[in-house]
């Protein structure tokens, strides 16, 4: 999507000059993909929302040093997201479950009904169970390609691999995922 990339380029330049609204536009454009990536690795929607904000705050702080010649912006965003996810896992090994009262104001405004929330939560746990049975690189390639909808080139940049390697990885990961879905289905029956 060359138009989108050009638009991103302009917004990045403006954001680097301190334009918060331009950065807000970048956020609006890329936050859904980042959120999906994070949520497909986490068991809590609020954590995914918090971490999405954290990713963009970190990116804002790193913007003065960022040059597009190095890593494309989307790949840069996902690299930051991946690092934040790793930090989150590390912290969570030492932390108690987070109290909902400690959440920021906007995060607490979840609209879902309790019954719907529980249903969603069960469904989400099921998804995580399937994904967590896969190898880490299979998980990464599948979430980046099909949940965050990154192109093979962008996925290759985020995962520091060649496009060919991503193709092979995706081919295998899809087959393994299908097997796991079968296994879990048999187990549940």
């Amino acid at each position: 999507m060359p138009g989108k990339l050009d638009n991103d380029h302009e917004l990045i330049k403006k954001a680097q000059r301190g334009d918060v609204t331009a950065f807000g536009d970048l956020y609006e454009s890329h936050a859904p993909a980042i959120f999906r990536y994070l949520f497909s690795h986490l068991d809590n929607q609020m954590d995914a929302e918090d971490l999405t904000g954290e990713v963009f705050l970190k990116v804002w702080r790193s913007l003065p040093k960022y040059t597009e010649r190095g890593v494309p912006f989307l790949a840069f965003l996902f690299k930051v997201a991946r690092n934040i996810l790793v930090d989150h896992y590390r912290k969570n090994n030492n932390l108690e479950t987070k109290d909902p009262e400690e959440m920021d104001g906007y995060s607490a405004e979840v609209i879902s009904e309790p019954i719907e929330l529980v249903g969603n939560q069960i469904e989400h746990q099921k998804i995580l169970r399937v994904l967590h049975r896969l190898r880490t690189d299979y998980q990464s390639v599948l979430t980046l390609r099909f949940i965050s909808e990154l192109s093979p080139e962008e996925t290759a940049q985020v995962m520091n691999r060649s496009v060919g390697a991503i193709r092979v990885l995706q081919h295998r990961a899809l087959a393994v995922l299908r097997e796991e879905l079968d296994n879990i289905g048999k187990h549940e029956d």
Binding site: Y27, P32, F39, S40, G53, Y106, E123, L131, I147
Partner: peptide
Amino acid sequence: VRLSVATRPGFIHDSRKY
């Protein structure tokens, strides 16, 4: 899965302001 892990309505708008 992509549909089930989508953001809740209004999240992007509100969180952008925040």
